[in-house]
């Protein structure tokens, strides 16, 4: 399960005024009031704690869920917490039209899958649809809908399959 290339689960669609939520920054994902937390297991409770409309995410999310957002997800600070809080909750992956550059690195390095689908429409599926995300070819599908995104880069895939940057480095 940990390093599957095909992920299946329930999809949280983050939207704002009928559009995919864009520019969700790291303070909305994981507020700076909780930055001193270093134990990953304690980070889950703060996920989206500062995101309007989704403040109850941490109590409603289930292990295996996936999250979908608009452009520039994870812009802002370099905090690893903004990735780790999802791992703590058992969220399998985050899908977005695009990601902030540092967020992308942090996700890749900790072996947390993220997939970019630049051409995603605002209502690709219904909230909580069961979806299938193929990391290998970058497709996201449910029912008859299928969207083509960017496949995982080679480095991202290698680090993901190794289980993280340090584990990957050991194999080099």
């Amino acid at each position: 399960m940990a390093h599957d290339m095909i992920l299946k689960g329930r999809l949280w669609i983050l939207s704002e005024n009928g559009k995919l939520f864009s520019d969700i920054d790291t303070d909305m994902i994981y507020h700076n009031a909780h930055l001193a937390v270093t134990d990953i297991d304690k980070m889950g409770q703060y996920a989206f704690g500062n995101l309007e409309g989704y403040r109850d995410f941490s109590s409603q999310a289930r292990p295996g869920d996936l999250v979908l957002a608009g452009e520039n997800f994870g812009s802002g600070s370099s905090r690893q917490h903004a990735v780790d809080c999802f791992k703590a909750l058992g969220v399998q992956a985050v899908i977005a039209r695009s990601f902030g550059a540092i967020y992308k690195r942090n996700a890749i390095n900790s072996g947390f899958p993220i997939i970019e689908l630049p051409d995603l429409p605002d209502e690709p599926f219904n909230q909580f649809d069961q979806i299938e995300l193929n990391l290998e070819d970058g497709t996201l599908s449910a029912w008859d809908n299928r969207y083509q995104g960017n496949p995982m880069s080679e480095v991202a895939r290698d680090i993901y399959l190794a289980g993280g940057l340090f584990q990957y480095a050991e194999k080099m």
Partner: peptide, 23 residues
């Protein structure tokens, strides 16, 4: 995340998370 401020002196700088930096 503002370590790219090094661009001001024509140098590379980049903010990264704790895994990267430990590495």
């Amino acid at each position: 995340s503002h370590l790219n401020i090094m661009g001001s002196v024509g140098a590379f700088g980049q903010g990264m998370g704790d895994v990267d930096i430990a590495y």
